[in-house]
Design a protein around this nucleic acid. Structure first.
Lengths: 184, 184
DNA sequence: AATTCATGTAGCCATGATAGCTATATACAT
DNA sequence: ATGTATATAGCTATCATGGCTACATGAATT
């Protein structure tokens, strides 16, 4: 090893995540990360090729956390209540930390193989639950592509204050969830 | 009038929109807009207070266009087929111009009264169609909050290449739409 | 002539990024 | 053991771009 390292890729990624969570993606500047890590901005480029690589690391990190969250929070007697619990956990994941959630599906970076993989990984809990519920294999994809868009759209709109016509948002979520699960 | 104006707020907004549509929000720079309008960057600040005001103008413009698009493309014999046509038109609006669509619900700028208003305006066609379909007034909000999040989430995921497990995306959309409308 | 206001010039600051140098821990040959 | 080569984390310096401000300019209305 040359010149003792003051920081590491993992430490820098953690700092980047904190910045994004606290103040959104725009707060993730090379300078801010470097400063918090006790190094100068140019030195950061020895660990990440550019700013977008930092953001990518954050996104992958968040997707892994989502996967763990969905596994942890899924309880219930029957399959339907477990699916509901998972959906509610998904929404909670987004609403409790909006800036953290917003990095998911942001941009069209899904051509990136690493993000693709992390994305797939985060979808596994739902796939497994649908299989366990006895959904036919060829219906799992269409069903996921009904439920996940609803969840994502709902969370994005909710944390963006797009539901501004009053009414009970909890109730709306339950109604939507019930409607979709009824068709499953 | 002093010094004849070389450009106008409307012209600048139109240029801004073209830039966003062509290359995404990051392409909307004060310099690029000014150059295309034949003025220098600082002069632009006499028409818009800052860059975000330009972006806001674009967002409002897009929402109005969405409203018009939904009204124009909605045909069908019965109410259900009209709702389906509207949903398909919504998706087409997003997929035919991804960068244009992405400005919708981006950020949490919905506290802004003008964006709120434009957002509401764009939702009118759906509300009217739901009312015409005989949906009870108190169910219109929950139903909208099931359908619109699904549509938004689906479009965002589709234009972000997030459906990367193969399968027929058209079919998935139709399945989801059918599932949701069945519960209406 | 005075006023008004869109435009222009000049410049500041933040940020992303690169070039090239320095310093040091390890590997290996002597 | 000792010295040399190498790899690499960090640094200073520098550049380009972009948002934005202060202030001057100049044409048209009054």
């Amino acid at each position: 090893m040359p010149t003792p390292a003051k920081t590491s890729q993992a430490a820098l990624a953690a700092i980047a995540r904190e910045l994004v969570e606290a103040s959104g993606p725009d707060a993730l500047t090379v300078g801010a990360v470097a400063q918090r890590a006790g190094i100068k901005p140019p030195s950061l480029y020895k660990h990440f090729v550019d700013r977008s690589a930092l953001l990518k690391a954050v996104e992958i990190d968040v997707l892994h956390e989502l996967e763990a969250h969905l596994r942890r929070e899924t309880k219930g007697a029957d399959h339907k209540s477990r699916l509901k619990a998972m959906a509610r956990a998904y929404r909670r994941f987004g609403t409790t930390a909006p800036n953290r959630y917003r990095v998911i599906y942001s941009g069209n970076a899904f051509i990136d193989p690493e993000i693709r993989e992390a994305c797939l990984y985060s979808a596994q809990p739902l796939f497994e639950e649908l299989r366990a519920a006895g959904i036919a294999e060829q219906r799992i994809l269409p069903v996921s592509r009904t439920l996940v868009p609803f969840l994502h759209g709902f969370v994005i709109m909710e944390i963006g204050s797009a539901f501004n016509l009053g009414g009970d948002i909890e109730e709306a979520f339950e109604t939507g969830l019930e409607t979709i699960l009824a068709g499953v």
